[in-house]
Nucleic acid binder design. Sequence first.
DNA 1: TTGTAGGCGTTATCAC
DNA 2: GTGATAACGCCTACAA
Lengths: 342, 342
Amino acid sequence: MVTMLDVSREAGVSSATVSRVLTGSAEVEPATRMAVLAAVEKLGYRPNLVARGLRRQASQVIALIITDIENPFYTAVCRGVEDSARLAGYSVILCNADRDIEKEREYLRVVEDQNASGVIISPANARRTDISNLLARRLPVIAVDMALDSATGSVLVDNKDAGALATDHLIGNGCRRIACVTGPAENATAADRLEGYFRAIAKAGLTKERDLVVYANYMEDGGYEATKRLLKLKKRPDGLFVTNNRMTVGTLRALQEAGVAIPDDINVIGFDELPWALELHPHLSLMRQPAYRIGQEAARLLIDCIRKENTAQHIVLDAELVTRDRQPSRQPRNKPSKPSRS
Amino acid sequence: MVTMLDVSREAGVSSATVSRVLTGSAEVEPATRMAVLAAVEKLGYRPNLVARGLRRQASQVIALIITDIENPFYTAVCRGVEDSARLAGYSVILCNADRDIEKEREYLRVVEDQNASGVIISPANARRTDISNLLARRLPVIAVDMALDSATGSVLVDNKDAGALATDHLIGNGCRRIACVTGPAENATAADRLEGYFRAIAKAGLTKERDLVVYANYMEDGGYEATKRLLKLKKRPDGLFVTNNRMTVGTLRALQEAGVAIPDDINVIGFDELPWALELHPHLSLMRQPAYRIGQEAARLLIDCIRKENTAQHIVLDAELVTRDRQPSRQPRNKPSKPSRS
DNA sequence: TTGTAGGCGTTATCAC
DNA sequence: GTGATAACGCCTACAA
């Protein structure tokens, strides 16, 4: 391994000067500067980032703790983070916490121990995720996907608005019995989307029916079961808002098995992209979060915080309604002429 | 920050003793050992992995360089790597090289500079991916998904066999004009799958037709275009082997747009899972690689190599045929009564 | 069994 | 502008 000492000898200067040239931390005579750079080139020297990290007490590494690496929303976030970090010269340690608060805690420790310079996290739980140790070390923490009170900054969409918009869309399509398949009750993001749903329902003067809201686990099987339950109701819903992408897959399967057609028998709107299924399901609408951009912005913000070029910010991006409806080919079977007041 | 020195003072011993207790590198009097552990506990001490890494010249970090983080095959590999690494106390730096040899090279440098202890890589290109620097540093490198001559070890499926099996399956279903949508010509893995296809075609006594093989880019749009091209042939194929998952999505869309039904009009077999689309496409068969297990084994093997508990190995896992056929509801329109000899 | 001391490769603080 | 030198936190000869 080529060290700075080798370079300094080759260039006939001290290692301090080499360091100055390489980091630009002080002025150096142009001639010596050239000599140093030549030596660096000749020997193929590259700084040892571990030694640098130890000395500077700061690495060129950020950590990304995500909820579910098999969910395309998070992989897109991940890509955004990575691209953005790379441009700034940072590497990314990826941690997949799996919605598991213990696993997340373990990873938060690793992050500290590895001396990462900052963290981007999609918290497992808004209340229980504990980043106080990181903050005590003055490490910036940026929350994505779910708000975290104590975070240094965040990049989120307004999930209440998004939930309301999604529901409005169904209402606009003439739906009057709109069901919602939502995430775990303790999930703050899911709760926001559900609140938006309720808001829209209320605004439209529709009745809030307990049976029309089903809590599930944010996974395919949860969406499947929830949808089956909804289809068993005496009065079937004519609209369905599913609050995440993996559950939407389950919903689509349940509908297919039951022979319920979109949009003829029911209107459906999902949340987040289904890169694979979507191409094959032309009449599914959805609320799309700008996942890649969320990642990009989070990394940019984090690195600004690390460099202290920026005070913390809370960035709110817009979720976008992707409409892919077509007119139903016949009258939906559950659509009453007036809003039901049951 | 709590250092070893703090612990040593608290316990009334030297820092060397603390180190010995913590690393188990030498016997320590049970009493002092207890005192040290008590002090560690009391102060909440945790070793600084950066300092340790500098001193030991080896980190607890491995790098994972993958081809495409938006491809569920690789995310599953990634998950396997991560779970397995975590159990062994290693962290994972994730690098998404995007099939881009330059980006890959950049990441290979980062890996060196960050002093990772080893690398798992799905190479961008079997010939051009250059890991000689890593090997010169005696860092183990495990190849997955694509073989790499110089790699320390590898975890792969036999892609030739898998390609042949997939094709055999179509033949077994009665297909006689079987097309193949394959990956970029310079992609060794794609080439293997194609070779397997040719082998099966030859073995069955079918003719090898140039028009029936289309090279594409391993992405959705490539699969889409390739399939459209195949559908325009005067004599349409009655079977189709698509050599990766993202292209299969494009294929499905093209078939859908053209009103070509599976399996009535054409038999299709894909490669690797389509977690989302598959549930909605019940009659698509596929060759499934054990992606999660590939990742797991790769990490295990790598860590064994790092610890020198194991010499290099080349592990070959089986790809599995997932049959989801049903009998066509009517006679396929392109199926000749005898193998065509055009 | 335990302590002392030196060094891993860099950078920051002094002098000069 | 440049060069010694110490220090980042840990591990490991070597000595006791």
